[in-house]
């Protein structure tokens, strides 16, 4: 077994008396595509918010690439190479698609405030690199055609794709996708699946929350099932399909 890329241990999160997550362990191994599924309200998005630092964790720990990120800020976690998307799309609506992508790569080399307030040669150098990367990502996600359009003017599916493209920008080690196939057209689902599969085959690691079971079963190498904030099953798609507890969680009382 290779070293874990992401290691969630005994993660617990309460919201005003409601236990959203209770003692959940998750291991994500490099290069795999792991899906997190479960009925509505089972804590999947909360888990993403805890991992990415948007929510403070009550107890438990999260380690990424061996480093403890439990108490880190979301921007710090992002810069370590962990990126995510949101269930309801987030973009910068008044910026062009290209600018959205350029925003999505915050180079660490130039943290000098004064330099960032002006366009120094070094900044321009970084921007040139970022621009190249953006062109590749646009090509990969077939968004080149709309690169100069303002993000707010795109269709929902395109905005979702743009958010995915933004997550790819810094070439992160781990990408968390929250419902990538939700509320988009069948064509867009096929496209999204193809991109994810292609990247995963190239070695990119994904942790995916997804409601579309067909997408989940097609893409995942492993699946973790949450119900009422607790892990009830873990295994390959075939194992999950026939798991009694999972069937009960989805179809039982």
């Amino acid at each position: 077994m290779p070293d874990t890329l992401l290691e969630v241990r005994k993660l617990t999160k309460h919201f005003a008396g409601v236990t959203a997550l209770l003692d959940v362990d998750i291991d994500v191994y490099p290069g795999e595509l792991l899906s997190l599924i479960g009925p509505n309200g089972s804590g999947k998005t909360t888990m993403f918010n805890c991992i990415s630092g948007l929510l403070k964790i009550d107890t438990g720990s999260v380690r990424f690439k061996g480093a403890d990120i439990t108490r880190k800020r979301p921007d710090q976690i992002a810069r370590l190479g962990l990126r995510r998307t949101f269930q309801d799309v987030r973009n910068f609506p008044n910026m062009t698609v290209m600018d959205n992508l350029l925003m999505a790569i915050q180079q660490q080399q130039e943290d000098n405030l004064i330099a960032r307030a002006f366009r120094t040669p070094r900044i321009q150098e970084y921007e040139a690199i970022a621009y190249e990367r953006a062109r590749d990502v646009l090509e990969l996600t077939e968004l080149t055609r709309v690169k100069d359009q303002v993000a707010g003017s795109l269709s929902y599916g395109q905005r979702k794709l743009l958010e995915f493209a933004c997550a790819l920008m810094p070439d992160p080690d781990l990408i968390l996708l929250d419902d990538p196939a939700a509320a988009v057209s069948a064509t867009m689902i096929t496209r999204m699946k193809a991109y994810i599969r292609e990247l995963n085959q190239q070695g990119k690691t994904f942790l995916v929350v997804e409601h579309n079971m067909k997408v989940v079963m097609d893409l995942s190498q492993r699946i973790i099932v949450l119900d009422h904030g607790q892990k009830i099953a873990e295994g390959t798609p075939d194992m999950i399909r026939s798991d009694q507890k999972v069937l009960e969680a989805y179809f039982g009382d």
């Binding site: 979301p74 921007d75 810069r79 987030r90 910026m95 925003m103 999505a104 933004c166």
Partner: peptide, 18 residues
Amino acid sequence: KAIRAVSQNRDMCAIVGI
């Protein structure tokens, strides 16, 4: 641009590393 980005979507900013 980062200032504009924060004004347009805060969570997204945090998530891209701002």
